[in-house]
C-alpha cells in the first residue's frame, strides 16, 4: 500500500513508521520522566535501622509488665535502659515464652534503633538459643516511675518495631494494616508525638493502672492505630522510656 494504511502482519508504511516511532519514543521518555519524578519526590522515611547482620548481647532483668522488656542499668547518672523484646515476625515478646526468673538474663538479638532514640527494641530469633538465664542475682531493679502530670497530645499510634526501623516507612495510612497486625500480635503500642520543643517524643501506651494493654482494652485501641488521634492521660517516666496511661475507649480522632 502506498498510503499510511497499517496492517499488523505487513510492513509498516514509511510515513506511518516515523509517526509511530515518535509516539513510542515520547511514551518511553514520558514514562521515564514519571519514574524519575515519582522516585525523587519520596519523603525521607527517617533513620531507623533493623540491623540483621549482627546480633547484640544485652544482660539485664526480664519483666513482662507492662510488656516483655529487658531492663539494664544505665550509665552513671542516667536512668536504667529498657529494651522492648519482640519476635522476628509481627508478634510481641509474650510469644517468646520467656523464663520467669528474677535472676539476670542475657539476650542476644538484632537491634532496632532510630536516631537519637538509640536502640529501643531487640528482636529475638529463637528463645532457646538467644535467651540465657545467668544464675547471677538481679543486676537492675525495676525503675521507679516518675509522674509527669496529665497531658493531651496529638500524634499517631504506631507499632515500635516497624516505626523504629523494621519498615521504612513504618507509619501512616499505607502502613496501617501492618501496624494493626503488629499491635494485635502483642508488640507494645507506642504513641509518636512531638514535645514542646518540636522534637519527637515517644510514649509507651499502658492502661490507667499502668498495665499493658491486652484483650478488650487492646481491641478498643486497634481501630485507631496509624490514624491522626488525640490522647489524654497521665504521663510518667520509667527508666529511659516515657509512658502514657490511657483509657483506650476515650481515644479521639482528629
Amino acid at each position: 500500500m502506498r498510503d499510511a494504511f497499517y496492517v499488523g502482519y505487513l510492513r509498516m508504511p514509511k510515513r506511518l513508521r516515523a509517526f509511530v516511532t515518535t509516539v513510542v519514543v515520547v511514551l518511553l521518555l514520558g514514562a521515564g520522566a514519571v519514574a524519575l519524578v515519582a522516585t525523587t519526590q519520596q519523603p525521607a522515611p527517617g533513620d531507623g535501622t533493623w540491623d540483621l547482620s549482627e546480633k547484640i548481647k544485652v544482660t539485664g532483668t526480664l519483666t513482662t509488665e507492662p510488656y516483655a522488656m529487658l531492663t539494664v542499668p544505665g550509665k552513671p547518672g542516667a536512668p536504667p535502659r529498657q529494651f522492648l523484646l519482640v519476635t522476628m515476625g509481627k508478634v510481641g515478646g509474650a510469644g517468646l515464652d520467656l523464663p520467669a526468673t528474677d535472676d539476670a538474663v542475657s539476650i542476644t538479638g538484632y537491634p532496632i534503633a532510630r536516631g537519637a532514640a538509640g536502640t529501643v527494641l531487640l528482636t529475638v530469633e529463637s528463645p532457646e538459643d538467644d535467651v540465657a538465664v545467668s544464675g547471677k542475682p538481679v543486676i537492675a531493679r525495676d525503675p521507679v516511675p516518675v509522674a509527669l502530670g496529665t497531658a493531651t497530645l496529638d500524634g499517631e499510634i504506631v507499632d515500635p518495631k516497624c516505626y523504629f526501623g523494621a519498615m521504612k516507612p513504618g507509619q501512616g495510612k499505607v502502613h496501617k494494616a501492618c501496624a494493626t497486625l503488629c499491635i494485635q500480635g502483642g508488640i507494645p503500642p507506642m504513641f509518636v508525638t512531638t514535645d514542646a520543643d518540636g522534637a519527637p517524643a515517644y510514649y509507651l501506651l499502658v492502661d490507667e493502672q499502668g498495665h499493658g494493654l491486652r484483650g478488650e482494652a487492646l481491641h478498643a485501641l486497634l481501630p485507631f492505630v496509624a490514624d491522626p488521634v488525640r490522647l489524654t492521660g497521665q504521663r510518667e517516666r520509667v527508666g529511659d522510656l516515657l509512658r502514657l496511661r490511657i483509657d483506650p475507649r476515650m481515644i479521639e480522632r482528629r
Partner: peptide, 28 residues
C-alpha cells in the same frame, strides 16, 4: 520499558537518601 521503569525507580530511590535514611527496598 517495564524493566527500565522499575530499575530506574528503585535504583534512584535507593541513592536518593543516604545510609540509614533510605527507604526499605521492598517499599521502593
Amino acid at each position: 520499558g517495564v524493566v527500565l521503569f522499575i530499575a530506574l525507580f528503585v535504583v534512584v530511590g535507593l541513592l536518593q537518601h543516604e545510609g540509614d535514611h533510605a527507604a526499605h527496598p521492598v517499599t521502593l
